[in-house]
Design a binder for these strands. Structure first.
Lengths: 194, 194
DNA sequence: TAGATATTCGAATATATTCTCCGAATTTCA
DNA sequence: TGAAATTCGGAGAATATATTCGAATATCTA
């Protein structure tokens, strides 16, 4: 029956996610996925049309998770400025656990998969949407002075991505929060009401 | 010149050890080893005759390290009973970092390499030797009552290996020491002078 | 229960990767 | 300068892997 089939697909995706996380796309074999799922290799092809197809499902699942958790994390905080901080920090931490989605975003050895381009765009869109919402609320509450919040959101997200790599590389976790403070001050220089 | 060549071999072995540790024998490619060593693929073949040959060098190096460190660790302790404890504990902890040697000892997907059999035998021999020495010193100092220390050493090492797996799997590090106490009591029941 | 449909898997095939070797180019050093 | 040491690109054979096929089995439906 159909429901059951989705369940098995999900199981396979979970199992595959772990293996992809450990070994990366190329070094992961269908045989491994099959064995770990306790199925025959060809049964996997009953549920997925290809290795790429499984990977796609894995990445999409991780993207969903990130999106959902991001929204939840932000809602836990009140002040829009703190929401921004939380957004940047939480995103960064969470991304470390979502290895497959993260490499899908970064790796160019994977960029020949057309689906990755779509995921990127979609995810960018989501981020901008979230930030825009935060900014607009901030403006309403007279925390921010921004003429064009849509434009500002794009700029902010872009800047954030630019800063992601140095932050990612930096191992000194304690200091990230401090630097984040500076980042926000910098990005919103003159825009935050004192 | 010859000295330089050995140096480069050593470098390659170090680099390869990391990759083998991360991905295992099969998933590691000569190309990766070459790239990580910043050499052309075929240059690697100038220094080693095959992938197996590199792996052999890696495993032998780790075996050397274990052997050396084990001896040092034991010498830091006085009482033979404590030496035994230290031997068992240290060996177990150290083995966790020497992944390639460890898998060489255990994995049967690798057992078609003839050199592995030799390494095993050699290492077993070394262990028995060390334990025998500890026992004999213990007897001299009248800590132990053992008729045949050679036989006892073999029995002890064998028992130790049997207990290795459950100890390895057990994550609760704190308790390992306690259980070790029991193990020694058990193995030497009636043999340790009170 | 029969017949249809869903699922499984072993074995075969097509494709891709990887090990290994060759030989020519470059470097080192006496 | 010339001989030996070292490097590496690229080719070919061997191996590994992804994917397909078809037959067997299980599950559902009426």
């Amino acid at each position: 029956m159909v429901v059951h089939k989705d369940q098995i697909r999900d199981d396979i995706v979970s199992v595959a996610a772990k293996i992809f996380t450990r070994f990366g796309y190329k070094k992961t074999t269908m045989e491994e996925i099959a064995m770990a799922s306790r199925k025959g290799k060809s049964s996997i092809y009953y549920y997925f049309s290809s290795k790429e197809d499984i990977f796609k499902a894995v990445v999409e699942k991780e993207a969903e998770e990130l999106k959902k958790d991001l929204k939840m994390a932000i809602d836990e905080v009140e002040n829009p400025i703190n929401q921004l901080k939380k957004f940047i920090l939480f995103r960064m931490h969470k991304l470390k656990t979502l290895t497959n989605f993260h490499t899908a975003l970064k790796s160019d050895s994977l960029s020949h998969f057309k689906f990755i381009e779509n995921i990127r765009k979609e995810y960018d869109q989501d981020e901008i949407e979230i930030v825009t919402r935060i900014l607009k609320i901030g403006i309403e509450r007279e925390k921010f002075v921004i003429d064009d919040p849509d434009l500002a959101a794009v700029a902010l997200v872009t800047a954030m991505k630019g800063l992601e790599i140095p932050l990612f590389i930096n191992k000194e976790h304690g200091r990230i929060e401090d630097r984040l403070e500076n980042l926000i001050q910098f990005l919103f220089f003159g825009l935050i009401k004192q």
